[in-house]
């Protein structure tokens, strides 16, 4: 169970998150949608503890990372998570299979002799094969993304945070990844938060959707709630319309944010 209460995150004078309240029940997949730059990645990083919120708290199974006494506790907190970075963040000094199995040494008791085979299996799950000995620089964008996904799930964490898992993938591969996320949820009871712009994927994998807007949660609900939402902003966003209230609000929002400086 992940619970975020009143999370406020600032970068210098700019307030990105202005009090986000989100809770994700165990075994649930929460999809977060929202405009580019509204702070979705920032929120995920607050959850995993890479960023510390200025106000509010995130607790995972009742444990608050801000209260962890020493670095070993912080490390214990973090190791429950698998995290797919938006840009992949593959280690470019290592081969693909070393990347995929990197965390196993710290997170599991699996003997190193089995790593290569395991890497093969995980890569197969994301639709990749025969690239174990490549380096990240030799892969296409979509392949890197999938290697990063394989790495995030390799240690079978109980929480997975996906930052745009299907961005940069072709439609068929996107659906393969959707199925993978659903499988992980159903079979391993993984609790996950998925950030995405891909509404088709959102509808397919979400137990619940939350929309982030202006640093707050604008609305939450099931896929059907969102499809039929009466809120004009949600309606505009999920249908991808250029005309609507959000564009106007964005204009208001920019000087507003500058005023806070």
């Amino acid at each position: 169970m992940i619970e975020a209460k009143g999370v406020v995150k600032r970068f210098g004078p700019r307030t990105i998150l202005r009090g986000v309240d989100i809770s994700v029940a165990t075994g649930e997949t929460l999809v977060i949608i929202g405009g580019s730059g509204c702070g979705k990645s920032t929120f995920l990083k607050c959850v995993v503890g890479l960023l510390r919120p200025e106000e509010g708290a995130v607790t995972v199974d009742g444990q608050d990372i801000a209260r962890c006494g020493n670095e070993a506790e912080v490390a214990d907190y973090r190791r429950r998570f698998g995290y797919l970075f938006q840009e992949g963040a593959l280690f470019d000094s290592m081969t693909i299979w070393e990347n995929v199995t990197f965390g196993l040494r710290y997170l599991t008791d699996i003997p190193p002799a089995r790593y290569r085979r395991l890497a093969r299996e995980k890569l197969a799950m994301v639709g990749l094969k025969d690239i174990e000995d490549f380096r990240p620089a030799e892969l296409s964008g979509g392949m890197k993304k999938r290697v990063a996904l394989a790495r995030a799930i390799a240690a079978e964490p109980s929480y997975i945070l996906y930052d745009e898992p299907t961005t940069g993938l072709d439609p068929i591969m996107s659906d393969v990844i959707n199925d993978l996320i659903l499988d992980l949820q159903k079979q391993l009871k993984v609790t996950s938060i998925v950030v995405t712009h891909d509404m088709k994927s959102a509808y397919k994998i979400a137990s619940r959707i939350a929309m982030l807007h202006e640093g707050r949660v604008l609305g939450q609900g099931s896929s059907d709630d969102f499809k039929a939402s009466a809120d004009p902003r949600i309606h505009q966003f999920v249908n991808g319309l250029s005309q609507g209230p959000i564009k106007m609000k964005l204009k208001d929002y920019e000087p507003d944010a500058a005023e806070g400086a």
Binding site: L50, Y83, Y106
Partner: peptide, 21 residues
């Protein structure tokens, strides 16, 4: 340069999420 590059490409953050420091 090496650690700096790892920092700006989030590889340092990735180390954290993969159970090391």
């Amino acid at each position: 340069a090496e650690i700096g590059t790892m920092q700006v490409t989030e590889q340092i953050d990735a180390l954290y999420t993969l159970g090391t420091d």
